[in-house]
Design a protein around this nucleic acid. Structure first.
Length: 410
RNA sequence: GGGAGAAUGCCCGAGUGGCUAAAGGGGGCGGACUGUAAAUCCGUUGAUUAUGUCUACGAUGGUUCGAAUCCAUCUUCUCCCA
């Protein structure tokens, strides 16, 4: 079997490692138990986490054992890495709830049968820590001088860093230490922003036990311009279909920059690299083919093949014309229309806009089409008779569609 | 605990009594061009029953014909000293 290191490297995951030679050797020789931590700060995972999940999946396919660690304890503190502001303090209940949702998603991508993967929650050992004991056992191995020079605290040195957050690194290091003892976990992976925390953990094990522990970080999903990917107007690109619909999700990948297609294919799909390279090399309009494949593959992995097919069919129907398709839709009642509802109120009703002013602007700027008819008169009224077979296709701008269904015919 | 300073729209940031719904930039949205791309260009970006009205420059109260701008108290943050 190919060394998983080469696979990860080839696909562009690998960013930094603590001991390159040793890591390659170890991964080639034995089944390694490793972990990646996920702090349940929101009620769904997002695409950034997905990269980490892909790493775990690649590793598992190559015979290694992942531990998906849910940060039920660390989230009580909040990781200051890569942030300019302090995280909101969250209640214990919220964190536990979010953690449960994370678990469900992990189960979709990893096999937990026969101990092939492990799920843990650091709340199990962090919440009841004794402060004095912890300081004496763990704290004494950390040099504040060194911590202050760590990259992850840099931008916080200007903005201010609370003692609460300053402790985060120790807790994450302690996690690694606990997992090492409990499961023989020798490696910790994470996004590149986790580098400081990861070496802190590996160092702790080396200091306390004199044993070898390793770490590796992976690239964060960024655009060719270096900005974070996976941001939509509404925030992150979530894996939960209730937060980001499969259609929306599909469209996100369908619309990535040309320059980012190849990278995304390598990181987010299991397509063989020859295929990835071939698709990435397509030029001009041809590269749309690669984007379609990317969008389909990623959507299928997260929402299932069926949803991906639906999203693809919808997109094709809308952008290339053709058969009816499933489009994000809303249902309204006939009585809402009455004798005719002004467009502005109508757009607000179907939640295509957030305010009437926005609706007004859109209409005046020619951004609204109803059944392929551009509406520019803000006094225009929608009537039940406008509906074709009880449905009305509303288009906002070039890419946002909404199928409005009428309930209760008159 | 003592002292200095800061808080402005989604974000950054200008504004020190009326001309301020608040410069400029970023982001968002719409349009043109295109390949459902990028770049570029144009428009737009508090709400509303819309040439009007209301709400808004950390919070509350005050001075004034008039306050983002002045005063008081409070909150939060930063910095210096202990």
């Amino acid at each position: 079997m190919k060394n998983v290191y080469d696979v990860l490297k080839e696909r562009g995951f690998v960013e930094q490692f603590t001991h390159e030679e040793e890591i390659i050797k170890l991964l080639g020789e034995e089944s390694v138990t490793f972990y990646i931590g996920f702090d349940p700060t929101a009620d769904s995972l997002h695409i950034g986490h997905f990269i980490q999940i892909m790493v775990m999946a690649h590793m598992q396919r190559h015979g290694h054992r992942p531990i998906a660690l849910i940060g039920g304890g660390t989230t009580m503190i909040g990781d200051p890495s890569g942030r300019t502001d302090m995280r909101q303090v969250m209640t214990r209940e919220r964190i536990a709830e979010n953690g449960e949702k994370f678990k469900k998603i992990f189960e979709k991508f990893l096999t937990f049968e026969d101990g092939k993967a492990i799920m843990e929650d650091n709340a199990n050992w962090l919440l009841d820590l004794n402060y004095i004991d912890f300081l004496r056992d763990i704290g004494k191995h950390f040099s504040v001088n060194r911590m202050l020079t760590a990259d992850c605290y840099k931008n916080r040195m200007e903005k201010g860093l609370t003692f609460l957050e300053f402790n985060y690194m120790l807790l994450q290091a302690y996690d690694f230490y606990v997992l090492y003892h409990k499961y023989g976990c020798k490696m910790q992976f994470g996004g590149n922003d986790q580098w400081s925390n990861i070496i802190a953990g590996a160092d702790l094990i080396r200091r306390k036990d004199g044993d070898s522990a390793y770490g590796m970080t992976f690239s964060l999903l960024t655009t060719s311009e270096g900005t974070k990917m996976g941001k939509t107007a509404k925030g992150a690109l979530w894996l939960d279909p209730d937060k980001t619909s499969p259609y929306e999700f599909y469209q996100y990948w369908r619309n990535v920059d040309d320059a980012d297609v190849q990278k995304c294919l390598a990181l987010l799909t299991f397509l063989p690299m020859e295929e990835v390279n071939r698709l990435g090399a397509l030029e001009g309009a041809e590269i749309n083919r690669a984007k379609e494949i990317l969008a389909f593959e990623v959507t299928a992995m997260i929402h299932g093949k069926e949803e991906a097919e639906k999203a693809e069919a919808s997109a094709k129907a809308l952008f290339e014309g053709g058969a009816d398709a499933e489009i994000p839709g809303v249902t309204i009642k006939a009585e809402d229309l009455g004798e005719g509802l002004p467009v502005l109120a109508f757009l607000e009703l179907i939640e295509l806009v957030q305010s009437r002013s926005e609706a007004r602007r859109l209409v005046q700027q020619g951004g609204i089409q109803i059944e392929d008819e551009k509406i520019t008169d803000i006094k225009y009224e929608i009537k039940a008779s406008d509906f074709v077979d009880g449905a009305l296709l509303v288009k906002k701008g070039k890419k946002t569609y909404r199928q409005v269904r009428l309930e209760g015919d008159q």
